[in-house]
């Protein structure tokens, strides 16, 4: 130890107050009960804070249930509006149901698409079928004229239009029920299977 260190060590540090000794020594004497006191205090604190925690839990539950019920209500309202809109729309004469095809008495099947409707159809012009369809085809068309979406019906009609040519070439009756109604294949099931 150097001379300076000795000199520094000889300096007298300030004494802490007497109260510090009392406080610290009492802490040693009661330190055996510190844990017990802390645990009691912790329990007391938990009891005091219990109503607050319960209130927070209640609020959280209400928020969650409110969010879920609101979401369900919005879903139901949306479904109701979605179902009701077509009927409301039909009152103004713009119903998509009004675009359904019709078959006149002379056997000519005319698609009654509006001009603007042809834009979103895969057929850009009025689709007219030849009148020499067999009675079987006419019956099928009569059955299906009212129901179904317009798009599916037009697709069906395109198949039928090709069918008339097919009937003429083969001398057989075109069976609609066995026809493959597919966007890519306008052909009967047999031809489809064969790969024709």
């Amino acid at each position: 130890m150097s001379e300076l260190e000795k000199r520094v060590r000889e300096l007298t540090l300030r004494e802490p107050g007497d109260t510090l000794d009392q406080r610290v020594l009492s802490c040693f004497q009661s330190s055996g009960n510190v844990a017990a006191r802390e645990s009691v205090f912790g329990r007391h604190e938990a009891e005091v804070n219990a109503p607050l925690k319960n209130a927070l839990t209640r609020i959280r539950r209400r928020v969650i249930s409110g969010t879920i019920s609101g979401f369900v209500a919005a879903l139901l309202v949306g479904m109701a509006i979605g179902n009701g809109l077509p009927s409301v729309w039909s009152r103004f004469g713009h119903s998509p149901a009004g675009r359904s095809s019709s078959i006149p008495a002379d056997g000519t099947v005319v698609s009654t698409y509006d001009e603007d409707a042809s834009a979103d159809s895969e057929f850009s012009h009025r689709h007219r079928m030849t009148p020499d369809l067999s009675q079987h085809l006419r019956d099928e068309l009569q059955k299906r004229k009212s129901a179904g979406s317009q798009f599916v019906e037009s697709h069906y009609l395109s198949a039928i239009a090709g069918a008339s040519l097919w009937e003429r070439q083969n001398g057989e009756k075109f069976d609609v029920t066995t026809h493959v109604s597919d966007r890519r294949f306008d052909m009967c099931r047999d031809c489809h299977r064969v790969g024709g």
């Binding site: 540090l13 300030r14 004494e15 802490p16 107050g17 510090l20 000794d21 406080r23 802490c27």
Partner: peptide
Amino acid sequence: HRQALFALALTITGCAGLAEDAVH
């Protein structure tokens, strides 16, 4: 070490009262 502990706390706090509180 009570004096040294108090001195260390006093070095940091700069106040005797706070230093005593810190030691306690």
